[in-house]
Nucleic acid binder design. Structure first.
Lengths: 110, 110
DNA sequence: CAGGAATATTCTTTCATTGGAATATACAAG
DNA sequence: CTTGTATATTCCAATGAAAGAATATTCCTG
């Protein structure tokens, strides 16, 4: 998880991830569109790959990078226990549970 | 966004955020429970506060830190454009759209 | 198998981050 | 207004990440 967040905490890597929403791209295109030197692009992509945020497909001497759901899903799942902090659905659920507790308490008195 | 991910890319800060799921805690307790020196705990908490991942309430000489929904919600929203990569609901929606496109094409032929 | 194209790796320098130790600040109690 | 408690701040050393330049690797083409 730390590796994932670390990968996402660099401006250029965040731009790469965002760019790849358009679809798979070779390293050269990524470098060009983001005004990066080719070695920097390669290095950033490798960091993203280790974090499972991108995956790569070899096409001849090209490397086609695309988004990898695994890393992004990991972020989603990490967020899960915190979702109740802002998600209205959990507030409703909490109320339902509170009501059940009240009813349970009521049962005991009877 | 980068500040948020950077804040979450440190092991001890991640442990602090996780610990605060139990509820608000003063700095001393956080430091003790995570075996951190008090200054380190303070420093990490300040980083988390700048990223709006925690908020603080002063109670006498104590500082009560709690989770701040803002930073976590920011992560949730950043994730939004990527959700279709793994969320089955988007797959269904994509199918519905594909069907609509097919029907539209059909209309043109008639 | 020589040449060229696309990408990866290595090396170096620079800059930011982390932890530890010491110290400073804020506040409550007496 | 002094003391004790809780937290923040500063300084320093060590570690790690990022960019740039140069070079190496891989693979297609002829």
């Amino acid at each position: 998880m730390i590796e994932t967040f670390a990968a996402l905490s660099d401006p250029n890597r965040l731009r790469i991830v965002s760019l790849l929403r358009e679809g798979p791209q070779p390293v050269g295109t990524i470098a060009e569109r983001l005004s990066l030197n080719q070695p920097q692009a390669s290095k950033h992509l490798i960091v993203l790959k280790k974090a499972r945020l991108v995956e790569v497909e070899a096409r001849a001497q090209q490397r086609l990078y695309r988004l990898d759901p695994a890393g992004l899903m990991a972020v989603h799942e990490w967020l899960e226990p915190y979702r109740r902090l802002w998600d209205a659905r959990f507030t409703q659920m909490d109320e339902v549970i509170a009501q059940m507790v009240r009813e349970e308490t009521q049962d005991r008195k009877e």
